[in-house]
Design a protein around this nucleic acid. Structure first.
Lengths: 131, 131
DNA sequence: AACTTATGTAAGAAAATATCACATAAAATA
DNA sequence: TATTTTATGTGATATTTTCTTACATAAGTT
């Protein structure tokens, strides 16, 4: 792991900072952890400490949810080793319609359910914090 | 101010994180603030929140102290607009002997006192956190 | 010797975070 | 449609972190 990756995985933010950085509630942040999407470390006092990588994942989760992808779908996306396929998609297409998401999920790892196609939001420009 | 500078001045770290990042005690960190060397913001709950820039300044302060420069000297150094002269010195010379520091301080802004010339440490490579 | 500097430490208050439990609208499923 | 699950809100209580203020002190300075 290079120096840069190391810095990005340094656990330095308490949940309050992450709340502001992501505009998520503490409840949501802890829930996404419970769902295995992030793995913040704990300090000596048992407080969760988050890394820049965690923050990025949380922002991505927000994007996915806005797209209409449910937790099950998001988990499947993150199961793709290192997120590589999804990342490449985001990097090349930059904007995914609900239909795209649906097609990808179905074709790449079978049906996942939970896609209703009624969410108009699209925000796959990859512009996250501390890039 | 560019995007990068903005990120570096985002107040996101609580004092506990800064303590670990810099290996300074809370007492020292607050004291350097009291001396006007850093200016952490406060959150709604009155807790100090530090930026990457603050962390860098603290690491520089550590370096200066290790070099034998006292608070008065460090303040003078930071009085140099944007730290430009000191930065250029660090960038070009990379290693300053106590004697160098003494000469610089004396010639550039008169005597500052507090330099004993007995400190063997030198660490001006500029390799700080989150670069 | 007396004063100043830079830092340690202690006490009490306030803020942030933890866990656990219960509530619930919307979505999924039977 | 009735039932269950999902994703999140809210409240209570405990613990940790940080704040301010005050006093202490070794080392350096005058």
């Amino acid at each position: 792991m290079g120096e840069k990756e190391l810095r990005r995985s340094l656990s330095v933010f308490p949940i309050g900072t992450v709340m502001k950085l992501t505009d998520l509630t503490a409840r949501k942040i802890r829930y996404y952890e419970e769902q295995g999407l992030i793995h913040p470390e704990r300090n000596e006092g048992n407080r969760r400490m988050y890394s820049l990588n965690d923050v990025d994942v949380l922002l991505e989760i927000k994007d996915y949810l806005t797209e209409g992808v449910n937790m099950a779908g998001i988990k499947r996306l993150y199961e793709l080793k290192e997120h590589e396929k999804a990342d490449r998609l985001k990097a090349t297409q930059h904007v995914l319609t609900d239909d795209d998401v649906r097609r990808i999920l179905r074709s790449e790892f079978q049906a996942v359910g939970g896609l209703d196609g009624d969410n108009p939001y699209q925000n796959f420009d990859g512009s996250h914090i501390f890039r």
